[in-house]
């Protein structure tokens, strides 16, 4: 991020409150802080990744008020009062979220850089309940790129969790 600034200009900081992985946080931030940078730099939650930083790769995907979004394209100040879940918030203690376990079971990653975004996106996809077939999973996961090309196993991991859900029966 290139910033031009004169030495005398004071930085306007704005108080906001966010619930991040269940914990209420009071923050004072510059208005140009993205939600992604806030999570990574201010809160130390570096599980959420900065890939393209332009909303094209999905590595920064988090759940905002239970909906998946690209945190790189959000100004944090606009999201004052929201509830954010990151990859760090999915597991319960040492017990992995079913999708985290499925990614391991299905070998659904290589370098792992896109994985937190893939998993957050897949958690939302399952909650949305609109993906049943492989084609629907692929289409509705199209906002998450994987440069290692682990797509086949990512779809398999999502199918594993979908198949294990009791409500899968019509």
């Amino acid at each position: 991020m290139s910033i031009s600034v004169t030495a005398s200009a004071p930085v306007e900081r704005i108080a906001i409150s966010l619930t991040v992985n269940g914990e209420r946080r009071q923050l004072e931030i510059a208005p140009w802080t993205t939600l992604l940078d806030l999570l990574r730099e201010d809160l130390g939650l570096t599980g959420t990744k900065k890939g393209c930083d332009q909303g094209q790769c999905g590595a920064c995907t988090v759940l905002l008020d239970r909906k998946r979004v690209n945190s790189c394209l959000m100004l944090a100040v606009v999201k004052d009062g929201s509830d954010v879940t990151t990859i760090e918030g999915l597991s319960t203690g040492a017990v992995l979220h079913p999708l985290q376990q499925a990614f391991i079971d299905q070998d659904a990653f290589q370098c792992g850089y896109c994985t937190p975004g893939q998993i957050c996106s897949a958690v939302a996809l399952i909650q949305e309940g609109r993906a049943r077939t492989r084609e629907e999973i692929r289409e509705l996961m199209s906002g998450n790129l994987c440069r290692c090309g682990a797509y086949v196993n990512i779809v398999a991991a999502i199918e594993q969790v979908l198949a294990a859900r009791p409500e899968k029966q019509p």
Binding site: G58, R68, V69, N70, M74, E128, G143
Partner: peptide
Amino acid sequence: GASPQLRNA
């Protein structure tokens, strides 16, 4: 158009 994440926002 776009992706689920972008359409959500």
